[in-house]
Design a protein around this nucleic acid. Sequence first.
DNA 1: TAGATTGTTAATCGATTAACAATC
DNA 2: TAGATTGTTAATCGATTAACAATC
Lengths: 209, 209
Amino acid sequence: MSERAVGRLSIYRRLLSELADGGSQNVYSHELAKMSGFSAAQVRRDLMAVGYSGSPAKGYGVSELVESIGHYLDDPVGQGVALVGVGNLGRAILAYFSGRRPRLAIVAAFDNDPKKTGRDFHGCRCCDVADMVTLIRKKRIDVGIITVPQFEAQEVADLLVKGGVRGILNFAPATIEVPERVYVENVDITVSLEKVAFFARHSRPSNAK
Amino acid sequence: MSERAVGRLSIYRRLLSELADGGSQNVYSHELAKMSGFSAAQVRRDLMAVGYSGSPAKGYGVSELVESIGHYLDDPVGQGVALVGVGNLGRAILAYFSGRRPRLAIVAAFDNDPKKTGRDFHGCRCCDVADMVTLIRKKRIDVGIITVPQFEAQEVADLLVKGGVRGILNFAPATIEVPERVYVENVDITVSLEKVAFFARHSRPSNAK
DNA sequence: TAGATTGTTAATCGATTAACAATC
DNA sequence: TAGATTGTTAATCGATTAACAATC
């Protein structure tokens, strides 16, 4: 499955959860298409991939579909996440994920500022970066989030990899080098803003992501 | 030019600036390839697109290339940016962009919390959302950044569009509807984290973005 | 010149879209 | 049945990669 497809599944899940909260039982592909901005054919192909079948009469069952996507995306046991760098951005992410996904929870936060270590941030204890490798191993953490300044990112990535993390979400504006087996997703806010500024001036491409 | 290509140009510019700071005069495509993670052929094609030619003998001139990319990406007059939602994430972005890009500066911040309005955050005055449309028009703001909670995003987007913004960078986990002429880029942290978690477990695709 | 790099075209690859038979 | 929707294949589209002549 492609990176983009996984991203779309994640979006469908959010939309379906909202529908479920609103009391909807069933949904058609063209309705999900309207809400998500993707084509109806795209939606059908994606849902087919998760192994849940709809019916021409009723479309897709909302709650069953949420469950199927969960089966597909989530680890059955659950994956622990470590966040490194408890600045404004780090705290924003901690606040947002607090208690939201039991199967993908931020279970440890790290910083090297003694004013922050030992304290709790949005229900997550902040530990010293010096203890990171040990704690990642102990808590069997699988995913790391880097929210430190640019020139500390590589060092943090090395420690995460040393601890055994297999995926990294990197918010630092830096290209980090990791072994091939480790998956890295870069979220570079400068890049995103410059893209928006550019296409605000030029006639944009399709735009529906 | 494609969305991805613009993103790559933004990354090249950051890398080239770092090279210039380090005193480098020239750079070869394969060196930029190594640093960025893209292929050398890709780098050459991208640089060709901005209209700057290298030479087989010396490669590309670092400072000239930074300038050429700037000519291509940046508006000659400069574009103003408005940020809406001065929470942790909003403040992180304000701090990061403060004084960084003169041609793409955040010139106004908005919130509806009276505890925040009237104060300065990282050199940017926070105004009331009620004054947003007027101020966007007055300051000729071109780009909006949405860092408000999920269910306020559409309302904020409507106001940004009403003010005349042509591009929106949306950090809220919500699909916002805007007129076709407005370019929207969504940065959904949940989607990114779920992607990383998924590919941490499965053998990832190419991974070089 | 020889060797490496650039600019540019052709081939490949993958993802999206369109079309349509099967299904309720 | 008729009509709409789903599942699935074929056609299209675009971007990336590979190849190579031109250049220093």
